[in-house]
Structure formats: C-alpha cells, structure tokens
C-alpha cells in the first residue's frame, strides 16, 4: 500500500458502474415493507374497511390521525358492520411513518404505500382527508397533483401489514391473516421461517 495509492482508487472508480441514478425520472424499487403515504383500503366488494374504531388515532405517537366514526346508514352501508369511519384525516406535517397505525388497525383498513415524494404547497394540502386517502374503484391510491407517482407504484400498498405477524409467534408466519383488498384480492404473506 503506497502513500499515494489513493490516486489509483479514484481512477479505478471511473470504470465502475454508477451508483446514483436518474432520480426524478426513474425510481429505485422500494422494498416490500417500505413505509410511505397511507391509503385507506376497501373490501373486494367495494365496502370500506375502516370501522371508525380510532385505534390508529389512539396509538399514533405523533397524534396526527383524526377519526370520527358514525353509524352506518341502514339503506346504504359504507362498511360491513355497525359503524364506519365518517371522518378520517392524517396530517402529514406530523406523521413520522412509524406504521403503528397499520399494526393497530384490526380490519387492515389503513396501510402504507411506497410513495414518499409529496411536496405540498400549503398546509391545507398536507392534511389528507378520506377523499384523498381512500382507494379508488380499482383499489389504487388516488394520485394527488403534488405527488410523484411513477408507473404502477401504487399497486404495492400493504407490505408492512403482511410482513408483520405482530405476535412474534413463528407458527403464524406464512399464514394469511387478513381479508382481501379491492382490486388485488388476498395478497400472499411473506414466507418467513415457514418457507
């Protein structure tokens, strides 16, 4: 190792592939478990999964979720069961993407997509309401004008939930513990130790 062999190291790099990419035009694929912007899921029949139980709001360490439940109108129920999430707001100026809400949700209503590029122009835009969070009729996230979605980034929305077997019980790995999602059906679990 010579005293000036650093020159060789820098020269060597010129013939190696680049580690940076063409960022805004292409994105690196995100791992399955990545925490991004939330979506509110629906059942395969189009019913909303949220039951307005406020567990997500309760567990949120940043106190960024505001939920109000209401009784389902009997003639046109929004969700199966008695109640549904009447108001659902997430303040992204506070959210820390810890995914405690995803772990807490008993009906897998709230999950996180892979998107983190959202730059609001005002504070009102930062507060996502049900209109923005709820998936559309094909089960995909509603793309807001200030969000940078590329390609079909919006089809992997529930990775963390499927990774998590919150009990830490090895017997429950590789088992489907959740209901199907609109547009995607019942997604496969991670195999974990069961493989």
């Amino acid at each position: 190792m010579g005293r000036f062999s650093g020159f060789g190291v820098t020269l060597k790099q010129m013939f190696k592939p680049r580690v940076t990419g063409d960022y805004p035009t292409t994105k690196r694929p995100k791992p399955d478990r990545f925490h991004g912007r939330h979506v509110l899921n629906r059942y395969e029949d189009g019913m909303e999964k949220c039951i307005g139980c406020e567990l997500c709001a309760g567990v949120c360490p940043a106190k960024c979720i505001y939920v109000r439940g209401a009784d389902n109108p009997p003639d046109a129920p929004v969700s199966p069961g008695e109640r549904y999430g009447f108001v659902y707001e997430i303040n992204y100026l506070r959210c820390i993407h810890c995914d405690m809400c995803v772990e807490a949700c008993p009906t897998e209503a709230i999950t996180e997509s892979k998107l983190f590029e959202f730059s609001f122009e005002n504070r009102a835009d930062a507060i996502y309401t049900k209109a923005e969070l709820l998936v559309d009729d094909e089960g995909r996230a509603r793309r807001q004008p200030w969000e940078l979605w590329l390609g079909d980034e919006d089809d992997r929305t529930s990775g963390w939930m499927r990774a998590t077997s919150p009990a830490g019980d090895a017997d429950y790995e590789g088992r489907v513990n959740w209901s199907g999602e609109l547009g995607f059906g019942v997604r496969d679990p991670e195999q974990g130790q069961s493989a």
Binding site: T10, Q13, M14, K16, R18, T20, G21
Partner: peptide
C-alpha cells in the same frame, strides 16, 4: 469528479 466517485 463524478466519474471518480461513481456518480452521474
């Protein structure tokens, strides 16, 4: 310098 640092 970008080449020498694996950058674009």
């Amino acid at each position: 310098i970008a080449d020498m640092q694996n950058r674009v």
